[in-house]
């Protein structure tokens, strides 16, 4: 009997070393603040470590890591919005509507304002489109990798990104 070469999975530490920087960059840019990014970073690696034995040997590690990170970002955003809704209903006002409703077009060419407006628009996108957009524009994944991370087809990944961009352009 001759056996094919032994195929040992990469040690987890090596995966961490290889990808920690880009994951941190992604989390920082998506969450927009250091505390959240640090929390999400820890949670991402803990989850990844727990799930690593069940990751098949020939699967895309990078897409898989982004899937974990993106899921955690989504969960956090959802928890946030729930908490925010409770606070709003208690105080009986709608500060979010106040802020997003008025597009002050006169400041549009100003970069500082544009960034704020843009993040509002991105935040208002449906979750899938936002996630795909983040993975494409912030993490720089290609569509095959996005499809892997979001567990959808490559076409769907492409459609989500382009719809997101179209929507932002139309609302701008």
């Amino acid at each position: 009997m001759t056996l094919s070469k032994l195929h040992v999975p990469l040690p987890f530490n090596e995966i961490m070393q290889r990808h920690e920087r880009e994951i941190m960059r992604y989390l920082l840019r998506v969450s927009g603040n250091r505390e959240d990014a640090a929390d999400l970073f820890q949670e991402t690696w803990l989850r990844a470590y727990r799930a690593y034995p069940r990751l098949e040997l020939d699967s895309e590690v990078r897409a898989w890591l982004y899937a974990i990170a993106a899921n955690l970002c989504r969960n956090r955003a959802r928890d946030r919005s729930r908490r925010a809704r409770v606070i709003v209903s208690v105080e009986e006002k709608d500060p979010a509507g106040e802020r997003t409703g008025s597009a002050r077009r006169e400041f549009r060419e100003n970069d500082g304002y544009a960034a704020v407006r843009l993040s509002e628009l991105v935040a208002s996108l449906p979750a899938k489109q936002r996630e795909a957009l983040h993975l494409r524009c912030l993490a720089g994944l290609d569509y095959v990798e996005i499809a892997g991370a979001m567990d959808c087809s490559e076409q769907a990944a492409r459609a989500n990104v382009s719809q997101a961009i179209r929507k932002i352009k139309s609302l701008w």
Partner: peptide, 17 residues
């Protein structure tokens, strides 16, 4: 706009990371 989207959060530079 596409460039802007790509620059979301780019205030966090590599040193900060």
């Amino acid at each position: 706009i596409e460039k802007l989207i790509g620059s979301i959060g780019s205030e966090f530079d590599e040193h900060e990371i």
